[in-house]
Simulated assay, not measured.
Amino acid sequence: MDGTTPNVTAHSRAMPFWEDVIADMEATAAEYEEMGWNTLELHPGDVTPLWTEQDDEFGLDVLVPDNEFEAVERLLDDGIEFDAFEVYRAMGDHLVFVVVVMEDHDEDAAVCYPAYYDVRGAEKMLREAMDAGTMYTYIRTLSEDRVQFTHDDPTVFQPPDPEKSDDAESTDADE
Rank of each mutant, 00 (worst) to 15 (best):
A27L: 08
A29I: 05
A29F: 03
Y32T: 03
E33F: 02
E33L: 07
E33Q: 14
E33R: 12
G36H: 08
G36K: 10
N38C: 02
N38L: 11
T39I: 05
T39N: 01
L40R: 04
L40W: 01
E41R: 11
E41W: 01
P44E: 09
G45K: 08
G45T: 12
G45D: 11
G45C: 06
D46Y: 13
D46M: 14
V47W: 02
V47F: 06
V47L: 07
T48R: 09
T48I: 14
P49D: 12
P49K: 10
L50P: 02
W51P: 01
T52R: 09
T52L: 10
T52E: 13
Q54K: 14
Q54S: 12
D56C: 09
D56T: 11
E57H: 08
F58S: 05
F58L: 09
F58Y: 15
G59R: 01
L60I: 09
L60S: 09
D61A: 10
V62K: 02
L63K: 07
L63Y: 11
P65E: 10
P65T: 02
P65H: 10
P65L: 11
D66S: 12
D66Y: 11
N67P: 07
F69H: 04
F69S: 04
F69C: 06
E70W: 06
E70N: 15
A71T: 03
A71G: 10
A71F: 08
A71W: 01
A71C: 09
V72S: 00
V72Y: 00
V72C: 07
E73Y: 04
E73C: 01
E73G: 00
E73Q: 10
R74M: 10
L75C: 02
L75Y: 03
L75F: 11
L76H: 09
D77H: 10
E81D: 13
F82L: 00
D83H: 00
A84Y: 00
F85G: 06
F85E: 06
F85V: 05
V87T: 10
Y88E: 15
R89C: 08
R89M: 15
A90D: 15
